[in-house]
Nucleic acid binder design. Structure first.
Length: 948
RNA sequence: GCCGAAGUGGCGGAACAGGCAGACGCGCGCGACUCAAAAUCGCGUGAGGGUGACCUCAUGUGGGUUCGAUUCCCACCUUCGGCACCA
């Protein structure tokens, strides 16, 4: 059986040989086959940077192994590959080397194809799709028009993030980190006000929060959920105070400000309003005497987002605009401010300030002397009182002690902490009885009262705030600079932790709602607001519409024409594609070449035929990748044909058979970008009647990142880059694949270890020798127990390999094969060698190895005279009976500690197991002189004897 | 600050569903082969103690539940990732 040439394992010889043969035989061509279940395995497509990175291998090789496993399991598997070929690096290369982006990109693709082929993956290259080719991007444009027709694409002037280095705007998702830098180049972004195209992804916010139809990692689900950031609350309308309306320049009357709040239960505590500086009402409402200050502040705020974005701890700033609004729940006249802590982009761009129960509002109110009125009771019942020296009549402290009230004494003052309303009541009573004339004492926190010698005054609203403050200031000169009671109280260190809280609790000082418990307060108030027509239930999202305009040449053109007569006119479907001019010159400034290309820019209006200009912005490359898994099914579909609104972007037969994607693999870094966009795209496609499912990818698994040997991220500047080409040259693709699967938890990744790979080198060499080198040749016959033991091992290995493949547990999958091989190497030196069972073991080992290391498996398969190709064989099936252990190790524990181990038949009875355990030496030793309390038996595992 | 994940030998990592902690591999040590080395093969390898059979400790730290906890619960520490004035 063994071929005469038991030569060494030389991957450099066998790998190219098989790759060539597989390709000639179209072994991995995936065609529709209704007789088989389909499996669409997809791995994220690379950007053609010109060099395949070890990270690409780490993502793709295990994914390929899994796709191969599914194929052996009998699925008709599609595992395509392509290139995300638009994007900035091509333009940068054009500037640096004077080479056209198209040429640069295609040359890179050529090189990367070669590199990818060296992996020996089962990519179906006939389905390759490159997003920068007209046959591809005509559909990207077509999708834009469909979105536009559906009202999901719109153009709007807005303040957007702009990367000065890439010279283009970015979507919010593409701005990363605390310093808000460009996701691609790391340069901090700046704000710019521009006319930009957006996709209404927010219309799908709620549906995007539903993950019930997909099996995606919890991590991604959480990140997307947080990114979308749904919050429920109410929109409340605050009318502008009548007295101020006369000052409006427009004079239309009935102006009002709508705010969004998650805490309508705190409405009675709204003592001011804040608008975002860019809020459209600001100009209308600002009174003449405040106009200058407002303008100054707006300017400063606009600049600040550029300059001072790093200072996270900066103090609150803002200015009063001179106007007042009416709090609709209690008629209070509240001042309107503008401040940069309110964002125009969230909610309505306006808030009600509830300083007693919102940390930011508290800080703001304290700084600007705005009243802070508690309207939600504390949930912990804690109140505090600071007793100034000499303010109380003698005996007060003793009375407190007698009443069981805790306090500390400090420099003659009493620091009293009260718990619960009963204690507070008692305290107020005592304080009332002891306070001297000319002094007062207050209780704050779970109760808000000021106790004077002539009575107890509750701090329950804006009027009380000023009245009480006036009295205190009369009595005590040192508090005369305080503008509000809360500011005065804040001066007392001891009080600080009870002055503010943001919890849900019983409503207080809230008119008819006073006493409403915290768990129903929000709902009750919201209902009431709706009844009264003051407000309504509302939902807000953190998610913004997707900014898709890029001021770049190298992207799919936005198919829009601006006509002086007809305005914004979409390019007719029939005129697609809008081709990128090949002769465009990329300006060294990095500006968009399309803006300067006369031939592209000037066109005729499709409506009136008059002269018009094209939109010169191109689309975010995330549009290209939002539908690439559809493109693979029939690349460059209908290229050269006339497209229509009702064209179908994919060969319908292919779409019907393959979609949706069954397993998607790739990095987590796309959690809130590509992976949200592509879900959005699919939902829109569904609503347009293009597909009949809700989610593009049913299962998602993320791999981690391979770091340099120094544990740092690989980078050229650090010099810690591991180049797969070198590894393939040295070890062969199978070893690299095997090591990438074996070395780490796939979803976690970690530092590269150039010594670790030697383990896989040795493993494959041992497999080679195990299969090809001669074994035992002496006399003797295989023992039955040995035969059974080997079969058991083989079937257990099948079981483990299958389970691990299902679970993407590639490291243990390889470990399991190593174990099988180790066991076989021992058997090889016995008469069992060469028997039928031995052959079963060899065959199984190769079949199980085939997905991970396709070349060596094919070579050994062929060398042992088995029919081509191993990759068309069925995945082996384990027999549970053969895999079952005959003998188990029964662990004997005394009080949970292992004291002995017994080899017993697997089907031992409970009685027998307990009997053996109780009588074994290890147990006896530790039971001496003690009584057995309990004996616990876990079948097939252990006996635990509890003694005392 | 908020949300999420993870902490196991010198290292990467195993451990079904609460039941033998450390599979598999790297590294290291000893041995075989060799004139020698490499490669290969064999044995050993969590820490401490004992001549030994054995004993004690050990899965970030401290508690808890349990006959029994790497696994479940609570608190804390550390690391990584995401978000960050989101009303």
């Amino acid at each position: 059986m063994v071929t005469p040439k038991t030569d060494r394992y030389i991957p450099q010889e066998i790998e190219p040989k098989w790759q060539k043969k597989w390709e000639e035989d179209k072994l991995y061509r995936s065609v529709i086959d209704e007789s088989k279940p389909k499996h669409y395995a997809l791995t994220m497509l690379p950007y053609p940077s010109g060099d395949l990175h070890i990270g690409h291998w780490y993502a793709m090789a295990p994914s390929d192994a899994r796709a191969r496993y599914m194929r052996m399991r009998g699925y008709n598997v599609l595992f395509p590959m392509g290139f995300d070929a638009f994007g900035l690096p091509a333009e940068n290369a054009a500037i640096r080397h004077g080479i056209h982006p198209f040429k640069w990109t295609m040359a890179n693709i050529e090189k990367m194809r070669r590199q990818l082929r060296s992996m020996g993956a089962m990519f179906d290259w006939e389905r390759e799709a490159i997003s920068c080719l007209p046959g591809y991007y005509q559909w990207t444009e077509w999708f834009f028009l469909k979105f536009y027709d559906a009202g999901l694409a719109y153009r709007k002037k807005s303040t957007v993030d702009f990367c000065p280095k890439c010279n283009t705007t970015l979507a919010r998702e593409q701005v990363w980190g605390e310093d808000r830098h460009c996701e691609r180049c790391g340069t901090p972004v700046i704000k710019k006000e521009l006319d930009q195209w957006f996709f209404k992804i927010t219309e799908y916010a709620d549906e995007l929060l539903d993950f019930s139809k997909i099996d995606w990692p919890e991590r991604v689900v959480t990140m997307q959920t947080n990114w979308i950031g749904r919050s429920e609350g109410a929109e409340v309308t605050f009318p502008i105070a009548p007295a101020d309306r006369e000052m409006e320049t427009g004079g239309e009357g009935g102006e009002s400000i709508v705010v969004f709040t998650t805490r309508p239960d705190t409405l009675w505590g709204a003592t001011f309003m804040v608008l975002a500086p860019e809020h459209p009402l600001v100009d209308k409402l600002t009174t003449p005497e405040y106009r200058q200050a407002v303008e100054d502040y707006k300017l400063q705020a606009a600049r600040q987002s550029e300059i001072e974005r790093l200072s996270t701890e900066k103090e609150k700033s803002g200015v009063f605009i001179g106007a007042y609004a009416i709090n609709p729940v209690n008629g209070a006249r509240v001042p309107i401010w503008i401040a940069d802590y309110v964002m125009m982009t969230y909610g309505t761009g306006a808030i009600m300030g509830v300083p007693a129960h919102d940390e930011r509002d508290f800080e703001f109110a304290l700084r600007f002397g705005l009243p802070i009125i508690p309207v939600i009771d504390r949930t912990d019942g804690v109140a505090k009182s600071f007793v100034v020296p000499d303010s109380m009549r003698a005996g007060f402290a003793d009375e407190l002690k007698a009443a069981g009230i805790q306090f500390e004494e400090k420099d003659g003052a009493l620091l009293v902490t009260l718990h619960g309303s009963e204690q507070i009541d008692r305290y107020v009573e005592l304080a009332r009885a002891h306070v001297k004339s000319g002094y007062w004492i207050e209780v704050v926190g779970a109760r808000w009262v000021f106790i004077f010698d002539d009575g107890v005054v509750p701090f329950d609203g804006i009027e009380a705030d000023q009245e009480i403050l006036a009295r205190c200031q009369e009595l005590e000169p040192s508090v005369r600079q305080a503008r509000t009671l809360m500011e005065m109280l804040y001066g007392v260190e001891f009080y600080r932790d009870v002055l503010f809280h943001a919890e849900y609790g019983t409503m207080i000082n809230s008119g008819p709602f006073t006493g409403t418990p915290g768990d129903v307060a929000v709902q009750k108030v919201t209902e009431w607001l709706e009844e009264k027509g003051i407000g309504k239930f509302a939902v807000n999202y953190r998610l913004r519409d997707w900014l898709i305009s890029r001021q770049r040449y190298w992207g799919a053109p936005i198919p829009i024409i601006y006509c002086p007569q007809c305005g914004t006119v979409p390019v007719p479907y029939e005129d697609l594609p809008v081709l990128l001019p090949e002769d465009a010159k990329i300006p060294p400034s990095g500006e968009n070449a399309l803006k300067f290309h006369e031939g592209f820019l000037h066109t005729t209006c499709p409506k009136c035929g008059g002269p018009a200009e094209r939109e010169t912005d191109t689309m975010d490359t995330f549009l290209c990748s939002s539908w690439y898994h559809y493109a693979y099914l029939s690349p460059y579909w209908m290229e050269g044909e006339t497209l229509h609104a009702d064209s179908y972007p994919v060969d319908p037969a292919e779409a019907r058979y393959w979609l949706p994607v069954d397993v998607y693999t790739g990095g987590i870094e796309h959690a809130t970008m590509h992976l949200i966009y592509t879900r959005f795209f699919t939902k829109v496609m569904r609503d347009l009647g293009l597909v009949n499912f809700d989610e593009p990818m049913l299962m998602l698994r993320n791999q981690g990142i391979i770091l340099g040997e120094d544990g740092e991220k690989m980078s050229k500047s650090r010099g810690n880059v591991i180049a797969p080409d070198n590894l393939v040259e040295r070890y062969g693709a199978d070893t690299v694949r095997g090591y990438l699967m074996f070395g780490w938890r796939w979803e976690q990744g970690g530092p590269w270890d150039s010594q670790g790979i030697e383990g896989v080198v040795r493993f494959l060499e041992r497999v080679w020798n195990c299969v090809l080198a001669p074994g035992y040749e002496g006399p003797g016959k295989a023992e039955q127990t040995e035969t059974r033991a080997l079969r058991r091992k083989v079937h257990q290995a099948i079981r483990k390999a299958t389970q691990d493949m299902e679970n993407f547990a590639f490291n243990t999958y390889i470990a399991n094969l190593m174990e099988l091989n180790n066991a076989m190497l021992k058997v090889k030196e016995t008469p069992l060698y060469g028997t039928e069972v031995w052959e079963e073991a060899v065959e199984t080992l190769l079949l199980l190895l085939a997905p991970a290391c396709p070349h060596i498996a094919e070579e050994l398969w062929a060398r042992t005279g088995r029919p081509y190709s191993i990759h068309q064989q069925a995945w082996p099936v384990w027999d549970p009976e053969i895999a079952a252990e005959e003998v188990i190790t029964l662990v004997v524990q005394i009080n949970g500690k292992v004291r002995d181990r017994l080899e017993v038949p697997a089907d031992i009875s409970e009685e027998k197991a307990k009997e053996l355990a109780l009588n074994c030496a290890g147990a006896q030793r530790h039971m001496a002189g003690k009584t057995v309390r309990q004996v616990i038996y876990v079948p097939g595992r252990l006996v635990n004897i509890v003694v005392k």
